Simulated scan of single mutants.
Amino acid sequence: MMAEAAVADVLAIQSLKALYCEGADLLPIDAVRAAEALMAVFTADATADYGAGLLKGRDAIIGFLVDGISPVRSWLWHAIHTPFVAVDGDSAEARWTIVAMMKDKGSDVIERAYGRYADRLVRTPQGWRIASMRWIEEARS
């Protein structure tokens, strides 16, 4: 059985990923508030790979998301599933399956992206934060 502290860590990490998804989904509606929300999700030196090359640093990641989503999408919606979280002291590994639906501005087409996020997280004085994240797209419709 998992100890109470480990359960609390897993729940905190799941909540952090939910905050990431909420922040990303807010990008088409309010890029400023979305960027503020995403600042609390990543470490300052985080890395991310969304399939277009490695982004280094929280500011680069958030800039990529703001510049790539806010001007293009009229809405974005993440559904996160089947969390796997393994905590090892002050670090953790997490994997999630994702369905993301999105609609471009001026379009009636709803796109869907199916894939996985693979994250490495660290415990900071402010709580758990994403230190690295990789998006693995498996299908798009």
Rank of each mutant, 00 (worst) to 15 (best):
G53D: 08
W75L: 01
Y20N: 06
A118I: 13
A92S: 07
P83H: 04
A79E: 07
G68I: 05
H81E: 10
L54S: 04
R73G: 00
D67C: 01
S91K: 09
A6L: 14
I98N: 05
Q14H: 06
D30N: 15
E4T: 11
S107W: 01
G127H: 02
R58K: 09
A94H: 07
E22N: 13
L54I: 14
Y20E: 06
S70C: 05
T47E: 14
Y50F: 15
L27I: 10
A92G: 06
W75I: 02
R129V: 03
S141N: 12
D45W: 06
G51P: 08
L38A: 08
A46F: 05
A24L: 13
T82L: 04
I69W: 03
I110K: 02
K103M: 15
P83N: 06
D45G: 10
G51D: 09
L27T: 05
G89Q: 04
L26Q: 11
A139H: 05
G53K: 07
A86N: 13
R112K: 13
A37N: 02
I136D: 09
M1F: 09
F42G: 04
R73S: 10
G115F: 07
A113G: 14
Q126D: 15
F84Q: 04
A40T: 14
G51I: 12
A5P: 00
R134V: 14
V72Y: 03
A52I: 03
D90L: 02
A24P: 02
Q14D: 09
D90T: 09
G51H: 10
R95Q: 14
A35T: 05
A44G: 07
C21N: 10
A100H: 01
V7T: 10
A35E: 10
H81G: 11
S91H: 14
E4I: 13
A100L: 11
R112P: 01
V85E: 00
W135C: 03
W128C: 06
A92H: 01
H78S: 05
H81S: 12
F42M: 08
R116N: 02
A52Y: 09
S15W: 07
G51N: 08
G57P: 01
